[in-house]
């Protein structure tokens, strides 16, 4: 395995990591305010399709990105409406989002593109050379060379991780969000509007999942396929838990799980363990996540009020 191959592998791994990371960040934001969003897989599907749609008709992936964010926000608002305004069960609402996404995207794919299975390929997409971030000075440094020519979406994912960390742990809003996620009643007694904070967190989180979808169809791949996101939202959910509900933790987990996704190509390149079945590596994220949840390896504990609807005592 030479240095070029390593660099290619790292770049490929980052390509897989990006959508996982966006999904995980969605979960981090939403769940730190106390709202579980297992619909993030469906939101990614919305983002993936509309991101492609915008990019396809405008010939600019940026338009796709904006459209993906907008649609993500809209679906997030639906989830917030059900779970926050009407105290609906957060898991049921998430299931609804996933199922709607499944049916509606297929419907729209066939309606708009008159195709089944795959959308047309994009020429202008974030993976294309024009939309990459070129850092030639890195190219000569071993290992870091992989970072010299990456899609802008990859960088965006890592920048947003930092932004989210700052938001959660160094801003007033972040402190309040975490308060709502830990003890909404206490937040109310301090004059914090739990509902408003949760609405914000859910919608902003959904926007991130939307970006994740866009990354999938316009950066990792250059088109939408009907099987997207192929459970990546759930890997993101796992990454969030494995990362202990923190942005950097989620990033670490996403990198690990992203690596797990490309083990097969590493095997192909290196020739190590040629008979390892892909199924045995694909389950890695889920097994690890169960292990940390069960406390076999470390311990990951959710915010105290995560998943619980909040009723204001207004009588």
């Amino acid at each position: 395995m030479n240095i070029t191959q390593i660099n290619v592998t790292i770049a490929q791994m980052l390509d897989y990591t990006t959508p996982i990371l966006f999904a995980a960040l969605c979960g981090v934001l939403s769940e730190n305010s106390g709202v579980v969003n297992i619909g993030l897989d469906g939101i990614m599907r919305f983002g993936a399709f509309f991101g492609l749609l915008g990019a396809y008709f405008s010939h600019s992936p940026w338009v796709g990105l904006l459209l993906g964010i907008a649609v993500g926000c809209a679906v997030g608002a639906l989830h917030a409406f059900i779970t926050i305004r009407w105290n609906g069960d957060q898991t049921v609402s998430g299931v609804a989002v996933n199922v709607i996404a499944l049916g509606l995207m297929t419907y729209l794919l066939e309606y708009i593109f008159s195709t089944t299975g795959y959308s047309p390929q994009l020429e202008n997409y974030f993976g294309a050379q024009a939309y990459r971030v070129h850092l030639p000075f890195l190219a000569k440094i071993p290992l870091l060379g992989a970072l010299s020519n990456l899609s802008v979406m990859i960088w965006l994912a890592f920048i947003l991780t930092i932004v989210l960390h700052v938001l959660l742990y160094h801003t007033v809003l972040g402190l309040r969000m975490r308060t709502c996620g830990e003890n909404p009643k206490a937040a109310t007694t301090l004059g914090i509007n739990v509902f408003r904070v949760r609405w914000f967190a859910v919608i902003a989180g959904a926007a991130l999942a939307g970006i994740g979808g866009v990354a999938l169809s316009t950066s990792s791949f250059s088109g939408f396929s009907d099987s997207m996101p192929n459970g990546i939202g759930f890997i993101g959910l796992a990454a969030m838990i494995f990362g202990k509900w923190t942005p950097f933790g989620a990033m670490g987990a996403a990198l690990l799980f992203g690596t797990g996704q490309i083990v097969q190509s590493i095997i192909a390149v290196t020739g190590i363990a040629p008979n390892l079945a892909p199924g045995l590596t694909l389950i890695l994220p889920y097994v690890l996540t169960l292990a940390v949840l069960a406390g076999f390896v470390g311990r990951s504990v959710a915010p105290a009020a995560d998943g619980l609807p909040y009723y204001k005592e207004q009588r």
Binding site: L78, I82, V95, A96, V97, V99, I100, G103, L104, T106
Partner: peptide, 9 residues
């Protein structure tokens, strides 16, 4: 699926 999803919603 769309109908089912919305009914669940």
């Amino acid at each position: 699926d769309i109908i089912e999803g919305m009914a669940v919603g």
